[in-house]
Simulated assay, not measured.
Amino acid sequence: MGSLFEELEACEAAARARVEGLEAELAELSGKLELARGSLERLRIARETVAEVLAEMTPEKSAAAFDQTIARESTASAYAGAERHVIGVLTVPNWQPGMEVEVLPQVYRDILEVVADAPGPVRAKQIVPRIGLPAETGKIEGTRSKLKRLVERGWLDEDTPGLFTPARLRTAKSPNSR
């Protein structure tokens, strides 16, 4: 009977070695899986960012808006020539009297419409669902940067940090009227 116990011990040792080998393989594959997940997440974020940037600038509208803005600025101000030195397409031009929201990309027009229709100051997180985006941190931050850009360019006001209102410099017309 001694040889039967020896045989069982040998089988147990072989099974243990196989289990340890598989556990080591599993640990290696888990590490590779985490690296692949990280790479996938970075690619997803890059794709979303590029999609947002491309959505903001349709080639015909952006070029036409830029040309219209330059033409208006050259007749409106002695300093308008400075705007011509901007490299690339200016998707959100500085607001000038008589300028219509049609010069803006659609997402900016949507934001202006929501702000104009609000009974008081609004936050980025209130605007996001109203323009059809999911209320995720990334979308809220992207919208906040668009709001800040609109403030910078004279389309909106931000008297209190994070609270946006239609620009007071504008005429009595709402930003989405024609």
Rank of each mutant, 00 (worst) to 15 (best):
L90E: 14
G120W: 10
G132T: 03
E20R: 12
R72K: 15
S74W: 08
P161D: 05
L33R: 06
K146P: 00
A15L: 11
R109C: 08
A76V: 03
S145N: 08
E56S: 15
V114I: 04
C11M: 07
A124Q: 03
T137Y: 14
L43E: 14
G31A: 04
A15Q: 06
S30D: 09
E7I: 04
A13L: 05
A71Y: 11
T160I: 12
S177F: 14
Q106R: 15
P119S: 11
D157F: 00
S39C: 08
L8E: 04
A46V: 09
V86T: 13
T171K: 03
G132R: 01
V19L: 10
I70N: 06
D159W: 04
E73Q: 15
R16H: 00
N94S: 15
I131F: 05
T137R: 15
G88R: 06
T49E: 13
A64E: 14
P134I: 00
H85C: 10
L40T: 07
S174L: 13
K173Y: 12
E56I: 07
V101Y: 14
F5N: 02
G21L: 09
R149T: 10
A51E: 09
L163D: 08
D67Y: 15
A46F: 10
K61W: 14
K125M: 12
S174D: 10
L8N: 05
S174T: 11
I140E: 00
V101S: 15
T143D: 00
S62T: 11
E34D: 08
G31Y: 02
A65Q: 09
R170G: 02
Y79T: 15
G162N: 05
G120Q: 10
F164E: 02
E7S: 12
S177L: 14
E152Y: 02
A71D: 07
K173T: 06
L163W: 09
G162A: 06
S145P: 02
P97E: 02
Y108M: 14
E12N: 10
A51C: 05
I127N: 01
P93F: 12
Y79P: 00
R153A: 05
V53P: 01
L104H: 05
T160D: 10
